Amino acid sequence: MNPLLVFVGGGLGALLRYAAGRAALLAGWAPPLATLGVNIVGCFAMGLLAGWFAHRGGPASVKIFLVTGLLGGFTTFSAFGLDTLTLYQRGAIGQALAYIAASIVISLLAVAAGFALMR
Protein backbone atom coordinates (compact mmCIF):
# COMPACT_ATOMS: atom_id res chain seq x y z
CA MET A 1 0.00 0.00 0.00
CA ASN A 2 2.80 2.47 0.85
CA PRO A 3 4.36 2.37 -2.63
CA LEU A 4 0.96 3.19 -4.12
CA LEU A 5 0.54 6.15 -1.74
CA VAL A 6 3.99 7.46 -2.70
CA PHE A 7 3.26 6.90 -6.39
CA VAL A 8 -0.07 8.75 -6.38
CA GLY A 9 1.17 11.51 -4.08
CA GLY A 10 4.33 11.93 -6.13
CA GLY A 11 2.35 12.21 -9.34
CA LEU A 12 0.08 14.85 -7.84
CA GLY A 13 3.08 16.71 -6.44
CA ALA A 14 4.77 16.72 -9.83
CA LEU A 15 1.60 18.10 -11.43
CA LEU A 16 1.43 20.81 -8.79
CA ARG A 17 5.07 21.70 -9.41
CA TYR A 18 4.42 21.93 -13.14
CA ALA A 19 1.33 24.09 -12.61
CA ALA A 20 3.12 26.38 -10.15
CA GLY A 21 6.10 26.71 -12.48
CA ARG A 22 3.86 27.51 -15.45
CA ALA A 23 1.89 30.06 -13.43
CA ALA A 24 5.10 31.75 -12.29
CA LEU A 25 6.43 31.89 -15.85
CA LEU A 26 3.12 33.27 -17.13
CA ALA A 27 3.31 35.91 -14.41
CA GLY A 28 6.67 36.95 -15.84
CA TRP A 29 9.00 35.32 -13.33
CA ALA A 30 12.36 34.14 -14.65
CA PRO A 31 12.82 30.32 -14.46
CA PRO A 32 15.16 30.42 -11.44
CA LEU A 33 12.60 32.44 -9.50
CA ALA A 34 9.85 29.97 -10.37
CA THR A 35 12.00 27.12 -9.04
CA LEU A 36 12.97 29.14 -5.97
CA GLY A 37 9.30 29.85 -5.27
CA VAL A 38 8.37 26.18 -5.55
CA ASN A 39 11.25 25.20 -3.27
CA ILE A 40 10.31 27.79 -0.64
CA VAL A 41 6.64 26.80 -0.67
CA GLY A 42 7.61 23.11 -0.55
CA CYS A 43 9.96 23.65 2.38
CA PHE A 44 7.32 25.63 4.27
CA ALA A 45 4.76 22.90 3.65
CA MET A 46 7.33 20.28 4.75
CA GLY A 47 7.89 22.19 7.98
CA LEU A 48 4.16 22.43 8.64
CA LEU A 49 3.56 18.74 7.98
CA ALA A 50 6.66 17.53 9.83
CA GLY A 51 5.69 19.68 12.81
CA TRP A 52 2.12 18.45 12.69
CA PHE A 53 3.10 14.78 12.63
CA ALA A 54 5.84 15.26 15.23
CA HIS A 55 3.61 17.07 17.73
CA ARG A 56 0.09 15.91 16.94
CA GLY A 57 0.64 12.59 15.22
CA GLY A 58 -1.56 11.12 12.58
CA PRO A 59 -1.89 8.07 10.38
CA ALA A 60 1.38 6.88 8.87
CA SER A 61 -0.37 6.44 5.54
CA VAL A 62 -1.30 10.14 5.44
CA LYS A 63 2.25 11.13 6.31
CA ILE A 64 3.65 8.87 3.59
CA PHE A 65 1.19 10.24 1.03
CA LEU A 66 1.76 13.91 1.89
CA VAL A 67 5.41 14.09 2.96
CA THR A 68 7.11 11.43 0.86
CA GLY A 69 4.69 11.41 -2.07
CA LEU A 70 3.13 14.83 -2.59
CA LEU A 71 6.00 16.99 -1.35
CA GLY A 72 8.58 14.57 -2.76
CA GLY A 73 7.02 15.06 -6.17
CA PHE A 74 6.59 18.79 -5.66
CA THR A 75 10.18 19.43 -4.59
CA THR A 76 12.95 17.23 -3.26
CA PHE A 77 14.47 20.36 -1.78
CA SER A 78 11.89 20.08 0.99
CA ALA A 79 13.35 16.69 1.95
CA PHE A 80 16.81 18.28 2.00
CA GLY A 81 15.46 20.95 4.34
CA LEU A 82 13.88 18.42 6.67
CA ASP A 83 16.98 16.21 6.73
CA THR A 84 19.12 19.23 7.60
CA LEU A 85 16.74 20.34 10.34
CA THR A 86 16.64 16.82 11.78
CA LEU A 87 20.44 16.71 12.02
CA TYR A 88 20.47 20.13 13.66
CA GLN A 89 17.76 19.19 16.17
CA ARG A 90 19.73 16.07 17.11
CA GLY A 91 22.69 18.30 17.92
CA ALA A 92 24.70 17.10 14.93
CA ILE A 93 25.47 20.64 13.79
CA GLY A 94 28.75 19.66 12.12
CA GLN A 95 26.99 16.92 10.17
CA ALA A 96 24.21 19.33 9.21
CA LEU A 97 26.72 21.86 7.88
CA ALA A 98 28.66 19.16 6.05
CA TYR A 99 25.40 17.86 4.56
CA ILE A 100 24.47 21.36 3.37
CA ALA A 101 27.89 21.97 1.83
CA ALA A 102 28.13 18.52 0.25
CA SER A 103 24.58 18.67 -1.09
CA ILE A 104 25.10 22.03 -2.74
CA VAL A 105 28.65 21.57 -4.01
CA ILE A 106 28.38 17.92 -5.10
CA SER A 107 24.95 18.44 -6.66
CA LEU A 108 26.22 21.39 -8.69
CA LEU A 109 29.29 19.40 -9.74
CA ALA A 110 27.03 16.47 -10.70
CA VAL A 111 24.88 18.74 -12.88
CA ALA A 112 28.00 20.16 -14.52
CA ALA A 113 29.47 16.67 -15.04
CA GLY A 114 26.26 15.32 -16.54
CA PHE A 115 25.98 18.33 -18.79
CA ALA A 116 29.61 18.01 -19.88
CA LEU A 117 29.17 14.30 -20.66
CA MET A 118 26.30 15.11 -23.01
CA ARG A 119 28.36 17.52 -25.15
Results as ranks from 00 to 15, higher is better:
V62W: 13
P59V: 07
G72F: 07
I40V: 15
P31A: 04
L71C: 06
W52D: 02
S61Q: 15
W52Y: 15
G73M: 09
V41P: 00
G47A: 01
I64H: 11
F44W: 10
G51P: 11
G72N: 10
L49P: 07
W52C: 03
L70V: 15
R22V: 14
A24K: 05
G37P: 12
G37N: 07
G58I: 06
A60W: 03
L70G: 05
F53M: 08
V67Y: 10
F65Y: 11
G51N: 11
H55K: 10
H55A: 12
G47R: 07
G37V: 01
G69R: 12
I40A: 10
L66S: 07
A60Y: 05
G42V: 02
L71A: 12
F65K: 14
A50N: 11
A27K: 01
W52H: 15
K63T: 01
P31W: 00
L70Q: 14
T68A: 15
V38G: 10
N39M: 03
G51Y: 04
F44I: 14
V67K: 01
L33T: 04
N39H: 06
P59S: 14
G42F: 04
I64M: 04
L33P: 02
P31C: 03
P32E: 01
G58H: 11
W52R: 15
H55Q: 13
F44S: 13
V38S: 07
C43V: 10
F65H: 06
K63Y: 11
T35I: 13
G72T: 12
A60Q: 09
G51T: 03
V62D: 06
P32I: 00
L33W: 13
A23W: 15
V62A: 13
L26Q: 14
F53G: 00
T35F: 06
